[in-house]
């Protein structure tokens, strides 16, 4: 008990916990839209592109001789992620098969470019690792302010515009026929995804960003069949695993990002395992018991007999 009180009075831990709490709540909100659009892996792609942004921010920072030379890393990641995300949306819109390749090249370019530029800027492999796998225990006050502002923006837009974003993600053709600003709403999802990647970067790292957006949503889907509740369950689960994971690393020397993701997957496995036991029993076999059967199987079997 006293140890928990001790942890909560540690200013370093206070900052980290606040960041983890907000990111845990915000990431699944955006993840819900990505899963609905079948773009569960989009976050990964944006994460790859964001690495180049981190590296460029770093390069500019050290060229300008700024005090910690990675002070521009997060702003750089925000800019690169937003540009990358908008480009992905544009390519997706065109719907050409070559778009698939274009995206792949963009993603690999993002990682490779990032690694090269960080090296040129004088970064070590340790600093590279902190972006790839998270560095929540070293959150500075500046980082925290940026994280809080971006998370609140994501939560306000992601939850506030839910009906419109749901409509566009669910049936774009209908949304167009309703006169909804479909282009702007699609761009909003793309930009929200980009911002989420950059705030989640501090907590779980660019390579695991997608997990924090997607796995809580997968858990939500198991326990409810409403869009609104899937998002709510995802968000609560996100907060729970982020705060728990981070707290554990206060006592055990583990990587917080990896632990958070493993915890989330563990919860998913647990819920998925218990699901058949908890689910309401449905009449076996016929999923639509109130619909009369209108296909007579007997006629079919005799027809098959004729074929032989």
């Amino acid at each position: 008990m006293t140890e928990i009180a001790f942890m909560l009075t540690d200013p370093l831990m206070q900052r980290a916990l606040l960041a983890a709490l907000l990111v845990g709540a915000a990431a699944p909100v955006v993840g819900t839209y990505l899963v609905q659009r079948r773009l569960a892996l989009l976050g990964d792609g944006i994460g790859h592109v964001a690495l180049t942004g981190v590296a460029l921010g770093w390069l500019i920072g050290s060229a300008m001789g700024l005090a910690p030379n990675d002070v521009l890393a997060i702003p750089g990641a925000v800019v690169a992620a937003v540009i990358g995300s908008v480009l992905i949306e544009v390519v997706r819109r065109r719907g050409r098969t070559s778009g698939d390749l274009a995206l792949a090249i963009m993603f690999y370019g993002g990682i490779a470019g990032g690694v090269l530029i960080i090296g040129i800027a004088g970064g070590s492999s340790g600093s590279l690792m902190s972006y790839l796998f998270g560095s929540i225990s070293t959150v500075t006050t500046t980082d925290l302010v940026l994280t809080v502002v971006l998370c609140l923006l994501i939560l306000v837009l992601g939850v506030g515009l839910r009906p419109a974003l749901f409509s566009v993600s669910h049936d774009e053709e209908f949304a167009i026929s309703s006169g909804l600003p479909v282009w702007a709403l699609n761009m909003a999802v793309a930009v929200l995804a980009a911002l989420t990647v950059t705030v989640a970067m501090r907590v779980v790292g660019l390579l695991l960003v997608s997990a924090l957006m997607i796995v809580p949503v997968a858990i939500g889907q198991l326990v409810t069949h409403s869009f609104r509740r899937t998002m709510a369950v995802g968000s609560v689960t996100g907060v729970a695993v982020c705060v728990t994971g981070l707290s554990i690393t206060y006592w055990y020397p583990l990587s917080p990002g990896a632990l958070i993701v493993v915890l989330a997957i563990g919860v998913y496995a647990l819920v998925a395992g218990l699901h058949p036991l908890l689910a309401r029993r449905r009449p076996a076999g016929d999923p639509h018991p109130d619909i009369p059967d209108d296909v007579q199987v007997a006629a079919r079997t005799s027809a098959q007999g004729d074929c032989e």
């Binding site: 079948r38 669910h170 409810t224 069949h225 869009f227």
Partner: peptide, 11 residues
């Protein structure tokens, strides 16, 4: 069958 389930009322 979209990625995320939704209720008839939500649609």
């Amino acid at each position: 069958a979209a990625g995320v389930p939704s209720t008839a009322a939500e649609v």
